[in-house]
């Protein structure tokens, strides 16, 4: 009996010790749309929305920093802090606007996980939809609408990133290459 106990305890301990480094599969039930990225994996899981800076340092303002700070997803199944870098829009837009309404709350998310050892990418996430327990799914595509509301008089035509006042000011000051007007002019003449 004693030997049996040892035989059971050793593999169990080894299994538990290995758990934090073993990649888990969170693809079950996911309806995430592919972005045809080399390292993407569908991932649907429950998590708590957290202010990452607060989690790491204890510096915790109200409401997760009101949108200034990056937000994380502390996964319920294993406590891993997933970093949502991207929302669902193909428009150079992050995930904070989508997650901020859920600051400190438990949610379920669906999207694409990026784990690429060659680039050092671990637990990087593109969130496509979010819901609270028992609630309806909400698409993570609010960013451009929020921008449009905040910039009703932004000049120019085209998508937000061509019209954003801060981006336009940076390009006006330092050029598209960041090297100044002369470098831009020489390159544009040569390239196009």
């Amino acid at each position: 009996m004693r030997q049996l106990g040892q035989r059971i305890a050793a593999p169990l301990a080894a299994c538990l010790l290995a758990a934090p480094v073993a990649a888990q599969d969170f693809s079950e039930g996911s309806e995430a749309k592919s972005w045809n990225l080399a390292a993407e994996q569908p991932a649907r899981f429950e998590a708590r929305v957290v202010d990452i800076l607060c989690e790491l340092t204890g510096d915790c303002p109200e409401n997760c920093g009101d949108g200034r700070r990056q937000l994380g997803l502390e996964r319920s199944a294993d406590g891993v802090l997933v970093y949502p870098n991207k929302n669902a829009q193909p428009a150079f837009t992050g995930a904070v606007v989508e997650l901020l309404p859920y600051c400190g709350r438990e949610v379920e998310v669906d999207g694409l996980m990026i784990d690429d050892p060659d680039l050092g990418a671990r637990n990087i996430y593109l969130v496509q939809r979010i819901r609270e327990a028992g609630g309806d799914w909400v698409k993570a595509d609010r960013w451009t609408g929020e921008w449009a509301e905040a910039h009703p008089d932004a000049p120019g035509k085209g998508p937000w990133f061509r019209r954003d006042p801060r981006i336009r000011a940076e390009i006006e000051a330092h050029g598209y290459l960041g090297l100044g007007e002369e470098a831009d002019a020489a390159f544009i003449e040569d390239w196009f």
């Binding site: 990056q70 150079f92 992050g94 990133f161 981006i167």
Partner: peptide, 14 residues
């Protein structure tokens, strides 16, 4: 990639 880096930074990407 500088112009895209501006877009992504302003767009809230880490």
């Amino acid at each position: 990639h500088h112009t895209c880096a501006l877009w992504c930074s302003a767009g809230g990407i880490p």
